[in-house]
Design a protein around this nucleic acid. Structure first.
Lengths: 311, 311
DNA sequence: CCCAGTCACAACCAACGGTTGTATCCATAG
DNA sequence: CTATGGATACAACCGTTGGTTGTGACTGGG
């Protein structure tokens, strides 16, 4: 199906005749006729009933018309998504099911008129480079990686501290606990596959291990969250960490348990990063939305890595 | 923008390389490379970063990808809308803002998984022919036109009696009335432009005029409901009829009044018509939905044309 | 150090899609 | 009844697009 033909179809449907549609599109009447004939041949139905005074939609044409308009609308938006200047706000989130995605969903609900593109970059270095080059407009990240202060031209605001919970199967030793002190996790096998060295997550868990003497197995390739959850559900000796706000798309029947961790509760600090000179009109709206809906952060009873602690 | 190029882009993004994408689409690697190069040229951005081991999405490519998928999805649905066999349920309504449209909206809310195409045919004759030929699946109409009994192979069920209300501007003599007996309308000018002779509406109003001695001016071309409402709002001597369920998209500030008509209340009887042998799986669901949510019809205090009265 | 595997460029060719010119149809006016 | 105007479709022509084949450049692994 050719988008030019669809455009011609919509123009002809609106005009009621091919000639005027052809004039609008700056082609000859014959070309418009050929385009629509080709479209009809591809679809296998007649879209217009031709009369000596114009062309009016057949019933199939009437049914097709709204779909054709939608198609052009979507094509237009697809084009806009890569047009510099007045393109959708591009926001990088740290994981597709994480808290930042939920925050963006909330933002979209609050401001459905703002066009959004949400993507996931590899690590904070990539994100910073993209923010500085203007390729993306904002990023949800832990505010700094260890030893690397934020550049001068990047601004940030802390928007959410997400508590980590323990995720176990029904047969796990801690499955019945309503909460578990972090000291009790020493000696339990905690499995976190797919943590890529060099990313903020790796730094975060390195610090967590060092601080509380945990044994985290980060080995093994990441076969996707489905495989991870499957293994956790079936293996009594394994557990994993998961952000409290992470949404699980998983049959509840598997009996996975989410157990809060306490004394202290490790939290992952999400900040929004952006370039101080970014002119995108939707960016201040996002910032305002996040700061006004942020629940704030407790500092007592929680733990964050030293490099992420508020100065 | 070429849909084939978009398809190639999505395939390459999924495969992570051009060669495999090209194999899926049954073209050569060079052709896929050219298609994506052309797409990048059209969009003005680089979608992939080429490596000697494949091609991975650039940031622009990541932003474009969901739009590309959506575009292909919409194109697929546009194609289905004219494919015989498993195409969306095609329902004809009598007016774009009338009660039947509202009923279909309710149905769509109740069954969002059912694909619908709603269209407006010229009159009941066209609708019957389209139902018999299978071009449409159902039609909302007054069950018969005068003197023309329903064919044997068409079935019908009465789903809604829609009361007619008087619509006036704020300066009209009846503007303050909470309701008006139909006998009081004799002598008032009632304006109904755009009623096409030969349609059910024309028959309906002919009967209404004959029964209650009204003077309805059906003259003048239809300049659209905006122009009609504009004139009604500004002309104290004019009023018009409007279905009680008709949704008005009109600034409330113009002070239009909707006044129920009584003793009796003229109602327009909407029936659903369909072919007894139509195999569309969604058709019985629509019928069940309509009959179970139908408010039923009062017969006392209401008026319908003799040809539409239940036998 | 070579090889396997990837993408890009060049040359060639068929097919698509545009234009111009023309025939046909029908409603309307004279 | 006929001429005319306005609409679509068909035919011929032709440039450009988009496919294939052949080849070169690049890079990571054995």
């Amino acid at each position: 199906m050719d988008l030019d033909a669809v455009r011609t179809f919509v123009a002809a449907a609106d005009a009621g005749q091919f000639q005027e549609a052809a004039a609008e599109l700056a082609i000859t009447q014959q070309a418009a006729s050929k385009r629509i004939a080709a479209l009809e041949r591809n679809l296998g139905v007649r879209l217009f009933t031709r009369t000596p005074r114009g062309a009016e939609l057949s019933i199939d044409g009437q049914a097709f018309l709204p779909h054709a308009r939608e198609l052009l609308r979507v094509a237009e938006r697809a084009l806009m998504s890569v047009r510099t200047g007045s393109r959708p706000l591009r926001v990088d989130v740290i994981a597709s099911r994480g808290a930042a995605t939920g925050l963006m969903r909330d933002f979209h609900r609050a401001h459905p008129e703002i066009e959004l593109d949400v993507l996931m970059l590899f690590d904070i270095e990539t994100a910073l480079a993209a923010i500085r080059s203007g390729t993306i407009d904002a990023s949800f990240r832990a505010v700094t990686a260890p030893g690397r202060p934020l550049p001068e031209d990047i601004q940030s605001v802390r928007v959410l501290d997400e508590p980590l919970e323990l995720l176990t199967g029904p047969a796990h030793a801690l499955a019945g606990a309503r909460s578990v002190p972090i000291a009790q996790l020493a000696g339990h096998r905690i499995w976190m596959p797919g943590i890529v060295p060099g990313t903020e997550w790796a730094s975060y868990y390195d610090d967590l291990i060092a601080e509380f003497g945990l044994t985290i197995e980060a080995t093994g390739p990441n076969f996707g969250s489905d495989a991870l959850l499957d293994t956790i559900a079936d293996t009594p000796a394994l557990a994993t960490f998961m952000g409290a706000r992470t949404r699980l798309v998983w049959p509840a029947t598997h009996g996975l348990r989410r157990i809060p961790v306490t004394t202290p509760t490790p939290v992952y600090p999400h900040s929004l990063l952006w370039h101080r000179a970014n002119p995108h009109p939707a960016l201040p709206i996002l910032r305002t939305h996040l700061t006004t809906t942020s629940p704030g952060h407790r500092t007592t009873g929680t733990w964050v890595p030293a490099w992420a602690a508020p100065r």
